[in-house]
């Protein structure tokens, strides 16, 4: 196997591990952020698209083994985020801090839209506690299950992903020069 491919595999493993593990690091500070997209956004900056999609998909698999089994159902979400990250990076959205925050917000919206059907159909509107609570509020106010799940996810995911976008911006600036695209 060529050294370059081996390096891509190791970097993919790092990106997967960052997606899965950084949430725990954020929890050490008592913050509720999942940070489950920083690895994907970094991967979009440094990996070929094949390895990026592999890393994104396997992030859900590894998360379901290490954190919580429900993550397995969100493979589609991770892949959608990977594609969104590639698009946003190409559009220069991670070149400044305000743009990175907007990029994070857009990734959050994308994540919410793709996750909502899974949460509604498979989990009946119940996922992580914060989203569940918001979903209940929307349901009680007369919205349908689908609308409630979508609205709850959008609020929580966009806050989470804005923080992730900002951190990813910092991290991209610190990549070794030979790795930066």
């Amino acid at each position: 196997m060529q050294p370059q491919i081996q390096k891509h595999l190791v970097v993919s493993a790092i990106c997967i591990a960052l997606n899965v593990g950084l949430g725990k690091v954020s929890n050490l500070l008592g913050l509720p952020f999942t940070m489950d997209t920083i690895g994907t956004i970094l991967g979009a900056a440094i990996l070929p698209w094949q390895f990026l999609l592999l890393a994104a998909g396997l992030s859900s698999v590894v998360a379901s083994v290490v954190i919580q089994p429900a993550f397995m159902f969100y493979i589609g979400t991770q892949i959608a985020i990977a594609l969104a990250a590639v698009g946003l990076l190409s559009a220069g959205m991670f070149k400044s801090l305000p743009k990175a925050a907007i990029a994070g917000f857009l990734i959050g919206i994308c994540s919410a839209i793709v996750s909502a059907p899974v949460t509604a159909i498979v989990f009946g509107g119940v996922a992580v506690p914060s989203i569940s609570a918001l979903n209940a509020v929307f349901l009680a106010s007369g919205h349908s299950l689908w609308t409630s799940v979508l609205s709850g996810s959008m609020i929580v995911e966009s806050i989470d992903k804005i923080v992730a976008g900002v951190i990813a911006w910092y991290a991209i600036r610190r990549l070794p020069s030979d790795m930066r695209a």
């Binding site: 196997m1 050294p3 081996q6 390096k7 595999l9 190791v10 970097v11 790092i14 591990a17 960052l18 950084l22 690091v25 954020s26 050490l28 500070l29 008592g30 913050l31 952020f33 940070m35 920083i38 970094l42 440094i46 923080v163 951190i167 910092y170 991290a171 610190r174 990549l175 070794p176 790795m179």
Partner: peptide
Amino acid sequence: HRLRALPSVILPVVTSLINEADQRSTALW
């Protein structure tokens, strides 16, 4: 305070792992 400290905790973890990728890859190979 905790939010402001977040980059100082996350970034060293991310940077060190990415910088080690080459050496890790060589060792495993």
